[in-house]
Amino acid sequence: MDESPELVSLRNGTKVTIRPMVAGDGPALLSFFRGLPQEDRQFLRDDVTRPEVIERFVAKLDDDSVIPLVAEHEGRLVGDGTLHRTRHGWEVHVAALRVVVARDFQRSGLGTALAHQLVRRAVGLGLDKLVAEVVDNQIGARRAFEKLGFHQEATLKGHVKDIHGAKHDLVIMANDVSHIWERMEALVADYSPTAGD
């Protein structure tokens, strides 16, 4: 897989490097997560303000069921994107995308750029379907995923609570990327172009 860093230009012209997470990212990652507002951290699965949680993330870099990317600007981590897949069982063709962006980099296109990289990597891994979870009021995130080919596939009513205890719907967005391989299937068909003439 192409692991080389990619320089991305955001809407306001800021340049950010998106690259795979490395073992030395632990301290910067902890600072990044601790810098997120509580309301943003509320929707994450782990308490990412705890060093041991970050150490666990970094320790899993050799685990090919998680593909983590980070976005870096002037030595500071400003975004985190991960692709999660299972290596066995009935969901082996599916991966979940998770993207988190620093508050001062939100609405800059960074989330879309991170998600785009994850989608590209997922296709490169031969996966068929991608899913992302978005809270109903995260309009920007929903639009970003829609731009990348995701659509609303399911809604879990009152499934998540914000920091004030208010319940929100969790929207499951999905993107069937298997169609990309239909053209490859046609290409390897070895079918005479004149057959049937």
């Binding site: 897989m1 490169g124 290409l187």
Partner: peptide, 11 residues
Amino acid sequence: VPKGTEELNLR
């Protein structure tokens, strides 16, 4: 190879 499939094909 078709666009979008380059990465896996190169692997």
